[in-house]
């Protein structure tokens, strides 16, 4: 019973943050702001779902920790792709509500 509650809790938290990330992607006004939604919320969202899976399968089938691999992988890769995308956007000089920095080394390599 307690276990079921924990699994349900993590599932709902995970689904909520996944949805929030996607909503951010869909409705924020410029690219740099849209970048925030998926990189943070979606990563934690999937993390929540994976935690639920970990608890559930540990209870049903005995230790199940391999979900940890996906979680860690996502946490390591999310900043990298966000960073590269931001760099690409700066290179293309996408319009932004925050004033773009002048003398940055954007895209210069």
């Amino acid at each position: 019973m307690l276990l079921e509650t924990a699994v349900s809790f993590f599932l709902l938290v995970g689904a909520f943050f996944t949805l929030v990330g996607a909503i951010g992607l869909a409705r924020l006004p410029d690219f740099y702001m849209r970048l925030h939604g998926p990189t943070k919320a979606t990563t934690l969202g999937v993390g929540g779902t994976l935690t639920a899976s970990m608890i559930y399968f540990t209870a049903v089938e005995g230790t199940s920790l391999h979900e940890l691999l996906i979680t860690l992988f996502l946490f390591v890769t999310a900043p990298v792709s966000a960073n590269l995308l931001a760099r690409a956007a700066l290179r293309l000089k996408l319009r932004s509500r925050a004033p773009l920095p002048e003398a940055s080394g954007a895209g210069r390599d």
């Binding site: 740099y32 925030h36 990189t39 990563t43 960073n83 931001a86 760099r87």
Partner: peptide, 12 residues
């Protein structure tokens, strides 16, 4: 990138 409302864009 992973923490409060900030994304690092361009490590010069």
């Amino acid at each position: 990138t992973m923490t409060p409302g900030t994304v690092s864009c361009d490590p010069s």
